[in-house]
Design a protein around this nucleic acid. Structure first.
Lengths: 166, 166
DNA sequence: CACCACATGTAAATGGTTACATGATTCT
DNA sequence: AGAATCATGTAACCATTTACATGTGGTG
């Protein structure tokens, strides 16, 4: 019954669906270039993942050539597209709380002194601010726009948290 | 050089620092009861973790008795407190983007039709709304207040995202 | 020529997961 | 009496991680 995709698998298939015939390398790079450091986008994660979903019939391999180089490119099968959409539109999982390094700390921030707390929150704010001017995803307007909302949302959340500690 | 704590370890030590002499069971339950489903708080994760940090000299074990039952309770050593605070006040890690099941989906949401997208966002909003009335962490005002800011921040972020897809 | 990006993997270690096992205590 | 909770683990499994290996092609 568990034909559901993991979030890494889902993200990989969605990327392939968008790009058409795609190499494992390109999938790995996509994860590595994302502003989240949660997934490293390492070969050790992605190459086995692609083989896994290929074995499940969700991908089709096409062995092509690029000059002397052999290239294996993958495309979604109809079943793959269906699985990807089921992953993507899973509202229940989308609405769940994931992992947030700030949230896991905030719940324990009352254990330090007011000065340490203030200094910490100031530093986080500065880093969040600095993240805005980082050139990540700037070449793709769609992603840049989404990333901007993420950073803004984090900042206003941080302000709400600051108010809690007054 | 890598004497840093993982986020699960840091959270566990912070919980023990707060509670005083604590059993592994209580640590596991704390994670299991948190509104985030990211860590299951299973015995298989927590008991080995406690042994790990104990071996690193960050915890002290006190084998006590509770009637006929043997109880092992753990307390932070000075080194443990130091490591915990270093974890807690690590602004760089706190400001980084973790894993968000909604964010991983949103970046690919342009691949479905406007109707599917609208329906999905509606469902997520409804689930986020329903989460507000769930009785989680309600017994601890500090945590309830933090959790409320998390849910509110997610809702206003979702509204910002909706605007992007218009 | 050196270096970097492209490309495809593998190996070992790690730190989680679920499931299982055992037993005492408390609640209904 | 039976169920739930407290408490302490272990075992098998799994998907990651880092690091390594190998080679091609384009760029400064």
């Amino acid at each position: 019954m568990d034909d559901q995709l993991s979030d890494l698998e889902g993200g990989a298939l969605a990327f392939i669906a968008r790009n058409g015939p795609t190499t494992s390398y390109a999938v790995a790079k996509d994860f590595a270039d994302s502003p989240s450091e949660f997934w490293s986008g390492s070969a050790g994660a992605v190459y086995p993942l692609i083989k896994r979903v290929l074995a499940r019939g969700l991908l089709e391999a096409s062995k092509g050539k690029d000059g002397a180089r052999a290239r294996t490119r993958y495309t979604l099968t109809p079943a793959g597209l269906k699985a990807m959409k089921a992953w993507l539109l899973n509202a229940k999982r989308a609405s769940s709380i994931g992992f947030d390094p700030l949230r896991t700390r905030i719940v324990h921030l009352d254990q330090v002194s007011a000065e340490e707390r203030k200094e910490f929150l100031k530093q986080v704010q500065a880093l969040l601010d600095a993240a805005k001017s980082e050139t990540v995803w700037n070449d793709i307007p769609r992603l840049a726009a989404i990333h901007a909302t993420v950073l803004e949302a984090r900042q206003s959340w941080l302000n709400a948290l600051k108010a809690l500690f007054d």
